[in-house]
Amino acid sequence: MIKFFRRTRQKLLAEKKVGRYLAYALGEIVLVVIGILIALAINNRNQRNIDAKNEQTYLLGLQEEFNISKNKLTELIAVNRANIESAEKIIGLMNQKDSLPLEEDLSQLLLNTFISDVAFNPNNSLLLEIINSGNLKNISNPDLRIMLTNWIATMEDISRQEEDLRHERENLLDIFRTDQFSIKTVLQQTDVLTSLKTPTDGERVSNLGVLSSQEFENKLLLFIVTCHATEDNHYSPLMGYIDDILESISSEIQEK
């Protein structure tokens, strides 16, 4: 078509028909512009298709990551609650001034309270890759983009709370790092030393005296309070946050 316009222009120019020459020249320009616009439209459509495909890949990956993180958080909440339950049982024993429990029972409660540290380790590899590579813009839902961006700051807040809880746990364990009470007794009574194939010979030091220790009670109460704060003010809201993210992701995933 353009060749036709070019040959016609050349013929009109030779015949000195300037008006028609200009009309054909303008037609040639219009055709070129139309061709460029069509090419751009096709290219833009192809790019949109590529972006949409990439977005779906990201969404499916993020959905898997956050589901794994949700399962991890569910398990961690259960561990934290078990720590609280055992610690509160020890407080209950401390309030029974007229009777003492069996050494074995106290040792099991002490082990249950302190053996499990609490630390949330979410699956963030894909999310971090998306953010660091600048591909977060490929997530078309603006609310979801904001939630994903804020997730990192939320994890930092969770880590600070967990560090506070770890500090209270260590303070409580410090009592058993003195010569007044015995970690060895706890491990012996709960058969941990046996499973570790560690010698258990030697005189056994009773830990029943810890139930009358004001220092131990104070530290145990601080530990319990921090455990409750970790779940009520951090883990529970975080679970809701994960559910919101998963709901938003699910609404953006196209049905195959």
Results as ranks from 00 to 15, higher is better:
residue 189 Q to I: 00
residue 47 Q to A: 07
residue 1 M to I: 08
residue 89 K to R: 13
residue 197 K to H: 08
residue 91 I to F: 06
residue 171 N to M: 11
residue 19 G to V: 15
residue 61 G to P: 09
residue 67 N to Q: 15
residue 185 T to W: 00
residue 251 S to N: 13
residue 86 S to D: 07
residue 6 R to E: 14
residue 252 E to C: 08
residue 130 I to W: 07
residue 43 N to K: 10
residue 191 D to E: 14
residue 144 L to T: 03
residue 256 K to C: 05
residue 167 H to P: 00
residue 38 I to N: 02
residue 183 I to R: 13
residue 93 L to Y: 12
residue 97 K to W: 10
residue 134 G to K: 01
residue 154 T to K: 15
residue 191 D to A: 11
residue 135 N to T: 01
residue 4 F to R: 10
residue 198 T to D: 07
residue 12 L to N: 01
residue 202 G to L: 09
residue 200 T to V: 10
residue 250 S to L: 09
residue 248 S to A: 13
residue 229 A to L: 15
residue 117 D to A: 13
residue 121 N to W: 02
residue 255 E to C: 04
residue 121 N to I: 13
residue 22 L to G: 04
residue 98 D to S: 12
residue 28 E to G: 03
residue 55 E to R: 10
residue 205 V to W: 12
residue 39 A to S: 11
residue 112 N to T: 06
residue 67 N to L: 11
residue 219 K to A: 02
residue 76 L to P: 09
residue 209 G to M: 00
residue 135 N to I: 01
residue 208 L to P: 02
residue 228 H to L: 07
residue 158 I to A: 03
residue 121 N to G: 05
residue 210 V to E: 04
residue 225 V to F: 12
residue 209 G to H: 00
residue 30 V to L: 10
residue 141 N to L: 06
residue 233 N to V: 04
residue 32 V to T: 06
residue 156 E to I: 11
residue 2 I to D: 10
residue 30 V to T: 04
residue 228 H to P: 02
residue 196 L to I: 06
residue 28 E to Q: 04
residue 215 E to I: 14
residue 87 A to M: 04
residue 59 L to N: 02
residue 77 I to N: 04
residue 3 K to Y: 10
residue 143 D to R: 11
residue 46 N to G: 01
residue 189 Q to G: 01
residue 18 V to I: 14
residue 113 T to R: 06
residue 169 R to A: 09
residue 18 V to C: 03
residue 195 S to P: 06
residue 55 E to S: 10
residue 240 G to A: 06
residue 206 S to G: 03
residue 128 L to R: 13
residue 180 Q to T: 15
residue 198 T to I: 14
residue 126 L to M: 05
residue 227 C to Y: 08
residue 66 F to N: 01
residue 42 I to C: 02
residue 138 N to S: 11
residue 67 N to F: 10
residue 61 G to Y: 12
residue 46 N to K: 07
residue 115 I to N: 12
residue 229 A to C: 08
residue 47 Q to H: 04
residue 255 E to W: 05
residue 125 S to I: 15
residue 231 E to T: 15
residue 211 L to Y: 08
residue 68 I to H: 09
residue 43 N to M: 11
residue 64 E to A: 11
residue 240 G to Q: 08
residue 99 S to H: 14
residue 117 D to S: 13
residue 228 H to R: 12
residue 196 L to H: 00
residue 171 N to T: 07
residue 174 D to E: 14
residue 30 V to Q: 00
residue 207 N to H: 07
residue 121 N to P: 00
residue 130 I to L: 06
residue 76 L to W: 11
residue 11 K to Y: 13
residue 210 V to T: 00
residue 53 K to N: 08
residue 131 I to E: 05
residue 42 I to K: 00
residue 222 L to V: 03
residue 165 L to Y: 08
residue 242 I to H: 04
residue 55 E to N: 08
residue 73 L to C: 01
residue 213 S to F: 06
residue 180 Q to W: 01
residue 139 I to S: 01
residue 65 E to H: 08
residue 48 R to N: 14
